[in-house]
Amino acid sequence: MTAFLEIENLSASLKRQRVRMLRSVSLSVAAGEVHGLVGESGAGKSMIGKAVLGILPAALAIDEGEIRLDGEDLLAMRPADRRRAIGAKAALIPQDPLTALNPSHCIGPQITGRLVDILGWDKRKADMRARELLAEVNIDDPDRVMASYPFELSGGMRQRVLIASAFAANPKLIVADEPTTALDVTVQKQILKLIREMQARHGTAMLFVTHDLGVVSKICQRLSVLYAGKVLEQATIAEFFADPKHAYSRALLAATPKYTDPGSSLVPVDSSVTDLVAAEIEAVDEGWRLAR
């Protein structure tokens, strides 16, 4: 399998404060593969997804590295070309469906708008496609939903709409940024199954950002464990859960609640583990600062 998305030595920092946010991140995702990005808040998981989609906050600068989408180096392109390349091949499933949908527009135009305005589709064709997709994400009456406003739908329904919307233009890569964190467990299970089905059917490559190792074990084939913008461990799911290599990975697993094990105590990630990683990172950063 050739990789559809390849990230090589990607580093980013805050422009003003000279604080490093991503530290030589390398990873690759093959077509049809789901790659999990796991870590605590502030580890830089979402940042990688944003860098791939070209939507990093303006305060961040990419210092070095390559992001290759379908063999093309995105960072070497002119901005307009880059936007077109990303828009045609990649899409996002965001975390919070309420902030991702415009509250003052109906659902229909919010799905078709991108197809018509950016990809130049015929309006009727876009409408058909939207209906088709809503049916595919198990929404019973697409017509009613297309004419509804976001507040009229439940959280699970809204997330289905966003999944349909992400798949609308047949993207080859989808970045899913904590798509189930805002949902309760039973709905989360349905949505995870739905994403897994859709992804398999369309053969989409996927970057799946989450802090929940339980979720990762259900949907991903490979994962990267991140801490402070650095990849500490990369493994297949089977390898990782059988035998996590890095001390931090083990600590993260220990902090994940397991209801089946009554004796299990929830152990927060110990500072002795993170201090070690932080010291390692500090040594590298020192060199980086001197080089600038």
Partner: peptide, 27 residues
């Protein structure tokens, strides 16, 4: 509740929790 849930809904809630285990049943 955890070892012998009586209600079907409790069972459903328990089954929906993703455990950090790639071989969990019913997923």
């Amino acid at each position: 509740i955890f070892d012998a849930p009586k209600a079907a809904y409790t069972r459903e809630l328990l089954d929906a929790i993703p455990l950090p285990d790639p071989n969990q049943k019913n997923w």
